[in-house]
Design a protein around this nucleic acid. Structure first.
Length: 266
DNA sequence: CTGCGAATAT
DNA sequence: CATATTCGCA
């Protein structure tokens, strides 16, 4: 039992926020050719075409990124409406969710509020609303789990929609033990090993635009999509099978994660 | 702002 | 159809 804690802690520690270790969320970037090969650009996607305007929320970590502030954008100076446009629908990929969970874990369920979580995650493009919304669902998920394991509805015949895993996304990430019972950590101090100083000031580089084909049913998709009346789904897929990756491990075999290309804004 | 429920969009 | 986002309220 305690071992479990040590165990998850060890794993967690292994992938700790050391800048060097911290980056691998959007690791695989698709090459332009590959993007084209994927039919990206056939349709008029604002993000796939050369109109890199404002940035779709890109998931990236505040660490090294080759392309710092300089891009040779052809028309990036004159029009940057941005801000007022709707952000693309954020796709909560398991990895992204993991970051979320880790953030909550490190903050402690107590102080896990949208704003703080968002800052700790340091995922650029992420908004407080994104996190807030997700946090709610996550809390419900946790609640559900507890209620289920406690004994509850064993009586009536479970089977009707009482799946322990109604939420595949949440299920894909290991839920820290202590999330379940209470917010109060007796010795929580001991569990706050590292708090990145950069939390409050992250340099953001936005990048990526991506694309994929319409896929439903798979949640291995890193990233976001945007749809507007008249636009087609710009979902993207990357990870193959459904499964259960325990944690940050990416699918062993690869369908190849397609991804984003650098862009600039601001 | 944060939390929550429901509606709405994609 | 599932999921994320938006809206109103506490």
């Amino acid at each position: 039992m305690k071992e479990d804690e040590s165990n998850w802690f060890s794993k967690w520690e292994s992938q700790l926020p050391k800048p060097e270790e911290l980056i691998p969320i959007n690791q695989t970037l698709i090459t332009p050719d590959l993007a084209i090969a994927f039919d990206i650009g056939t349709t008029h996607n604002p993000y796939t075409t050369h109109h890199h305007h404002q940035q779709p929320p890109a998931i990236s970590t505040p660490s090294s990124q080759p392309n710092s502030g300089e891009f040779d954008s052809s028309e990036l100076a004159g029009d940057e409406p941005a801000r007022t446009l709707k952000r693309p629908r954020l796709v909560w990929t398991p990895q992204l969710h993991k970051r979320f969970v880790d953030a909550v874990a490190q903050l402690g369920i107590k102080h896990a509020v949208p704003k703080t979580i968002m800052q700790l995650m340091s995922v650029d493009g992420l908004t407080r609303e994104n996190v807030a919304s997700h946090l709610q669902k996550y809390r419900l998920y946790l609640k559900r789990m507890q209620g289920l394991s406690s004994g509850g509805s064993g009586g009536g015949g479970f089977g009707s929609g009482g799946d322990p895993v109604t939420d595949r996304l949440f299920a894909s990430s290991p839920v820290p033990p202590h999330f379940l019972h209470q917010s109060g950590h007796p010795n929580s101090d001991a569990f706050l090993p590292y708090m990145p100083a950069a939390v409050l000031q992250q340099q953001h580089h936005q990048q990526m635009g991506v694309v994929g084909h319409q896929f439903q049913r798979h949640f291995g998709s890193p990233v976001l999509s945007r749809q507007q009346p008249g636009q087609q789904t710009v979902h993207m897929v990357g990870t193959p099978v459904r499964g259960s990756y325990a944690d940050d491990q990416q699918p062993p075999q690869e369908k190849k994660a397609l991804t984003l290309f650098p862009v600039g804004d601001d």
